Simulated scan of single mutants.
Amino acid sequence: MKFTLYLLFATAILSSCFEKKETVSTHTPIQKTANGVDRDSIISFAKQFIGTPYLYAGNDPEKGFDCSGFVSYVFKNFDVSLPRSSSEYKNLGTALAPEDFRVGDILVFYGYKDRTIIGHLGIICEANGMQSKFIHASSGKVSSVTITSLDTEHYTNRFYKCIDVLTK
């Protein structure tokens, strides 16, 4: 009798180890508002990818993102089509005054070595003028999607403009 119970128990344990598990996405869908895109929803969606590795030319959360891949991926989820290359943001939109920065606006930065080209992008997640915080795919020390303050010397010196791509 004991042997039969042990055998049943062992069979149950082994069969649960070999069950096929369904793949479930850890990224929850975000609801859109009736009157357009909700700026806070953009940030909630973007924050799901914090820690996703930086990958040059990446635009896939399973593999990694570069800065423009991350921005275009996030906004695409809200049916907002944006350029895939950061260089295409140089002439996109109208520059906003710092007091007009809002959550969901895009920060555009020069390259860290060359101030004639656009080298980086991020999405404002806490709006406070030039002290705003932004979420971005960083190729720096963190080498992943992270949140950074705009008022760090590295980004303040490279700041080109902030644009609103949501208001028509």
Rank of each mutant, 00 (worst) to 15 (best):
T94P: 00
T26D: 12
K90L: 15
T28L: 11
E62A: 15
F109W: 13
S81E: 07
T23V: 14
G58I: 08
E88C: 08
D40M: 12
G58Y: 06
T26M: 11
L82K: 02
L96P: 03
G104F: 11
P98C: 15
V103M: 02
K32C: 01
A46I: 10
L82R: 00
R39P: 09
K20E: 11
N35L: 11
N91D: 13
F78T: 06
K32G: 09
E88W: 04
V103W: 05
D60V: 09
Y54G: 05
F109H: 11
V103Q: 06
F75K: 01
I30C: 00
R102A: 14
E19C: 14
A46S: 08
L55D: 10
T52H: 01
G51E: 09
D40F: 10
T28I: 14
I50D: 07
F78S: 01
S68V: 03
F109N: 00
G69R: 08
F78R: 05
Y73G: 00
T94G: 08
E62V: 12
K21F: 01
L107N: 06
S41G: 14
F78H: 03
K32D: 01
K20D: 13
T52D: 04
P98M: 13
K20A: 14
Y54C: 06
I43G: 03
F109L: 09
V71S: 03
L107S: 02
P98N: 05
L82H: 03
F101R: 04
N59W: 02
D79A: 13
V74Y: 01
K32I: 04
Q48P: 00
S41W: 13
S85W: 02
R102H: 13
S86G: 05
P61C: 08
G64K: 03
Y56I: 11
S41Q: 14
P61Q: 03
V24H: 13
K90R: 15
P29C: 06
F49E: 05
G104Y: 04
S85L: 01
V103D: 05
E19G: 09
E62T: 15
F101T: 03
L92Q: 05
P98W: 14
G64N: 05
L96Q: 15
V24C: 06
T33D: 11
L107T: 07
T33L: 09
S86I: 05
F70Q: 07
E62K: 15
